[in-house]
Simulated scan of single mutants.
Amino acid sequence: MQELTVNDAVSSALAEEMRRDPRVLMFGEGVATTRPDLVAEFGSERVRNTPLAEAVIAGTPAGAAAMGLRPVIDLLYAPFLTLSMDAIINSAGKLRYLSGGQFAFPMVVLARTGAGWGVGAQHNHNLEAMFVHAPGLKVVMPSNAADFKGLLKSALRDDNPVMFFMDMTLGHTPGAVPAGEHVVPLGQAAVLRSGRDVTLVSYSKTVGHCLTAAQELAELGVDAEVIDLRTLKPLDEATLLRSVRKTGRLVVVHEAAAPCGVGAEIAALVSEQAFEALKSPVRRLTGPDAPAPSSWVLEQAGVPQPEAIVRTAAGLVLCDEVSA
C-alpha cells in the first residue's frame, strides 16, 4: 500500500495508462501547464493545452476516438460541460450504436464538481444525473483515492465514453492505494460497512458523511450498512437490492438536487423490485434545488451532513421498533 492524495492517484493512473497504451492522449484547459510531468515523459503531442472553447475540446476527442485513439479531456468545472453536451451526448454517446458497433468511442471526460471551494454557481453544479440519463455514456463518481485510481484506469480502457466526476474537496484527501497495478471494474458498488437495520447509499464525498453517521448510529443501537455506488451508470443493482432486502430500510444521500436525481432512480428501483422487503418508506437526503452559493458556510448547509443522516436513519429504525 502507498499513501496518495486523490489528485496524486489520478496523476498516477494517467501516467500508467499512457505508458501502457500509446494511443492514450490528454488535452484540455491548462493540462500541459498543470501536469508538466506528463509533458516531460510523453511529449507535447500527447499532452496539450487547448483554448477555452469547451465545444471544441469535447468535439475533438470524439473524432479522435472514432479514428482509434483513446483521448482523455479535462474540462475543469462540471458546469462547463453544458457547453460541450452536443459532442458528448449527441456524438460520442450515440455513434457507437449508430455505427452498428463498427466504431468504438473510448473517451474519458474529467470534470470537477461539489461544494467546498466557494467558487460560485457557475463553477459548482452537480450535473451527474444529466449524463446518467444520456444513452451510451458511463458515469463514474468515486469517493476515495484508491477508487479514483482504479476506476480511472478502467475508464481509460473502456470502449465507451465515460464521464469521470471528481469532487473538488476530495482532491487533497489522502488515502491508501494499492501499489502496482490497481484496476477497479466499472459497475461494481462497494459495501464499506455491513449492517442489519438500515442501508445508507451514497457516492462521492457524502460517502464519508454516511460512514461518520453509521458510527454515530451504532452508539444509538442502530446497525447501518453503507454502500458506495462508485459507478452511477452502469448501476450495481444487485448489490443495492441485496442490501435492502436484508435491512428493509433505505436512505439515499447525495449532494445533487433531488428532482430526477440518482436518488430518485434508486428509490424507483427498490420500490419496483424489493417493495415486499421494505419496512418503511425510502428516504432521500439531497442538496437543494437551487444554484450553489459562493459562501462556504451556505455551501455546507446545502450538503447532507452526518447529523441529518443520523436523524433520518434513526427515525426510520426506532419508529418502526416502537410501532412494532
Rank of each mutant, 00 (worst) to 15 (best):
A224R: 06
V282D: 04
G63W: 09
L127H: 05
F105H: 05
A129N: 13
L76E: 10
R23P: 10
A258H: 15
R112K: 13
L318R: 04
W296F: 08
K94C: 04
R96D: 00
H209W: 08
R242C: 05
L232Q: 11
G100P: 07
A176S: 11
T34L: 05
A214E: 01
A92D: 08
G287S: 07
T33V: 11
L200A: 13
V226Q: 15
V56T: 13
F27C: 01
P306N: 01
E45W: 08
S323Y: 15
L186D: 08
G208D: 11
L14D: 00
Q102L: 06
V24E: 02
G93D: 06
T113H: 07
L75K: 15
P161D: 00
S99H: 10
P142A: 02
E299V: 10
L25H: 12
M130Y: 13
T34D: 07
A129L: 05
P61D: 00
V39E: 02
P71V: 03
N90V: 05
L81Q: 04
Q300I: 06
V6D: 01
H182V: 14
D86A: 00
E307A: 14
R35F: 07
L69C: 03
V251H: 12
L316D: 03
E181Q: 11
L81N: 00
A129G: 08
A213F: 09
A268L: 06
K149H: 09
F165H: 05
A134G: 13
D228S: 11
A129E: 13
T173Y: 04
F148V: 01
G101H: 08
N7Q: 01
L137Q: 04
L285E: 05
V303W: 09
S91M: 13
M163V: 10
T239A: 10
D147W: 13
A53P: 15
E45M: 01
V201W: 14
A224T: 11
A176H: 10
V262K: 02
L316H: 14
V198Y: 12
F80V: 01
T50D: 10
P259Y: 15
T247H: 07
D8L: 00
G248Y: 05
A92E: 00
F80A: 03
R193N: 03
N126W: 14
G59Q: 02
T60S: 10
P178W: 13
T212G: 06
V56W: 08
L69N: 03
M163P: 13
D8E: 13
L192M: 03
V56A: 14
Q102V: 13
M1T: 14
L110H: 15
A257S: 14
R19T: 12
T212A: 12
